[in-house]
Design a protein around this nucleic acid. Structure first.
Lengths: 129, 129
DNA sequence: TGCGTGCTACGAAAGTGTTCGTATCTTAGT
DNA sequence: ACTAAGATACGAACACTTTCGTAGCACGCA
C-alpha cells in the first residue's frame, strides 16, 4: 500500500517529527501547543490517537521498547511534499507546473530575495540538465 | 464570509465550470464523465447535490430563470489557486515559496521547455518589480 | 504493599464530505 | 387531460477525520 496523503492534523504532527526527530507523544503534543502561528488546542490523547492512526496508515513508525513510545516519521518530507504538489497540480492547475510556479511567485510571501534565489536555482537546473 | 477552500469533488466541478463557462447540471455531469484522466463515476443527482451545496457555500451562483438551472463559478480560478497554494505553503513548506517552487520544478512533469518559460517569467518579475 | 503519576488503548461522539434513492415538479407532445 | 421525459429538492446512509473521556497498565516510592 502506497503512503496515502496525510490529512491536515496528520501533517501538523509530521511537521513536528521532521523538525524534532524521534519524539514521544508528550514531546509532539507540547511542540504543537508551543507553535506560535497555529492556535493548536487539541488535548494529549488526541495526539496519541492520531499517532496510532498514522502508525496503522504507515505514516510513522514507533519504538515500543520503553514505556513512553518513541515515534518517528516513516515518510520523508520531500516525498510527502511531492505527493501534495502533485495533487495540487492535477487538482487545480491542470497539471501545469508553470502555472503553479507563477501563482506561487505572485503570493505576497514571495520576497525579492526569494526571487533572486529561485532564478539562480533555475539557471542551475538549466545548466545541470 | 470568505470563500472557503473547495473540497476535491467541488474542485472537480469548478474546473469544469471554469473551462466550459455557465453550464447546466447535466452538462457538468457529462463533462466529468468524459474526462479522460479521472475515472469519475458519480451519478447525476450527486453532481446536483454538490452544486446545491456549493451554492450555499458561495462557490457558485445559479440562474434559475429556466427549468434547467444554469450554474457558473462565483470564485475565480486565480483566487482559488492562491488559496490552495497558501494552504500548501503553510501546511507542508513552512511558508517557504522557494521550497515549494523547488519541489514543483523537480516533479517529472516539469519539462525543459517549462523551465525556460519559468526562467523568463522570473527575469520579467525581477525587472518589473 | 499500596498510591500517585504518567503512559497506552479504545470506544464513541461530533462534524464533514460524498453518494444515491425517492419524491415532486415542469414541460412538451398526443 | 394524460403521460413520459427530464429537472429539482431532500433525506438518509456511509465513510472519514478529529476530538475526548474513560479504563487499564507500569513504574517509582513512602
Amino acid at each position: 500500500m502506497a503512503s496515502s496523503k496525510p490529512t491536515a492534523a496528520e501533517l501538523a504532527i509530521l511537521r513536528v517529527l521532521w523538525r524534532q526527530g524521534p519524539s514521544t507523544v508528550r514531546a509532539v503534543h507540547e511542540a504543537l501547543l508551543a507553535e506560535p502561528a497555529s492556535d493548536y488546542t487539541a488535548g494529549y490523547t488526541t495526539v496519541l490517537k492520531l499517532l496510532q492512526i498514522m502508525r496503522k496508515k504507515g505514516l510513522v513508525v514507533c519504538d515500543t521498547a520503553n514505556m513512553a513510545h518513541v515515534y518517528r516519521p516513516a515518510v520523508s518530507e520531500a516525498e510527502t511534499q511531492s505527493d501534495l504538489v502533485k495533487d495540487l497540480l492535477d487538482g487545480a492547475f491542470n497539471g501545469s507546473t508553470r502555472a503553479l510556479v507563477l501563482r506561487a511567485l505572485s503570493m505576497p510571501s514571495s520576497t525579492p530575495e526569494e526571487l533572486v534565489e529561485i532564478r539562480k536555482l533555475i539557471e542551475e537546473l538549466e545548466r545541470g540538465g
